[in-house]
């Protein structure tokens, strides 16, 4: 090939490559140029769409998925007969709410405690129980079927050890994760470490991400 042609085609080739590279970024072929943050748990990307469900809130009203829309929801599954781990986690969530409030990140957040023990946790009991930990907290429960459907979608495990002779004094094995539901009612993150400072820092990181 004559040398003059190389000088002609080389710049053209380079220019085409550059345009291609630019287009590939611009067309969103590399949408994750922002490194996903490391959190104490799992960031769900893209956020997981959840099928609708029907729970019963602390006032005895139906609680559907649309109640999650328009705000971030910290979600925790447990039961009020739990003497130790559930109160601890709710205390930590109560502190998280105070941190977020101090940082003006709390206007658009909700906190929901879902009891997986509907036999003993009647709605009114849930209301009194959750309000003790923080006035913003709400409680809900549901039929065994609806609870199972929701928990399964969210990766929450629980098992009622209903073997007590009197049918009352049983315990429940359950996942201890705190879940974060995004304003589109999708699962966005799973927090496996419940220190309020860690959860607050992780929540800030998630807020800074581009919308999904």
């Amino acid at each position: 090939m004559p040398r003059s042609k190389i000088f002609l085609f080389l710049p053209i080739g380079l220019a085409a490559f550059a345009v291609g590279l630019w287009l590939s970024f611009d067309l969103g072929l590399y949408p994750e140029r922002v490194e996903p943050p490391t959190i104490a748990g799992f960031l769900i990307t893209p956020p997981k769409v959840i099928e609708d469900f029907t729970l019963i809130d602390q006032s005895g009203q139906s609680f559907h998925q649309d109640r999650w829309r328009g705000q971030w929801t910290f979600l925790y599954f447990g039961y009020t007969f739990c003497p130790d781990v559930c109160p601890l986690t709710l205390l930590e969530l109560g502190k998280l709410q105070k941190i977020l409030e101090r940082e003006h990140l709390d206007q658009n957040t909700a906190y929901l405690f879902v009891s997986v023990d509907p036999k003993r946790d009647l709605p009114q009991r849930l209301g009194e129980y959750t309000a003790y930990f923080n006035p913003k907290f709400r409680g809900a429960t549901g039929t065994a079927e609806e609870l199972a459907k929701l928990a399964q979608q969210l990766g929450i495990y629980y098992k009622i050890l209903d073997s007590a002779a009197d049918g009352q004094n049983y315990t429940v094995d359950h996942s201890t994760a705190v879940l974060l539901i995004d304003p589109q009612a999708r699962l966005r993150a799973v927090f496996t470490q419940h220190s309020p400072d860690t959860m607050a820092a992780d929540f800030r990181k998630i807020l800074e991400l581009p919308p999904q």
Binding site: T80, F81, C82, D84, L126, E128, Y129, A131, Y132, F133
Partner: peptide
Amino acid sequence: ARESPPAAANGA
């Protein structure tokens, strides 16, 4: 022991 929340039936 930690104080019991209202409606809590159990403690530790």
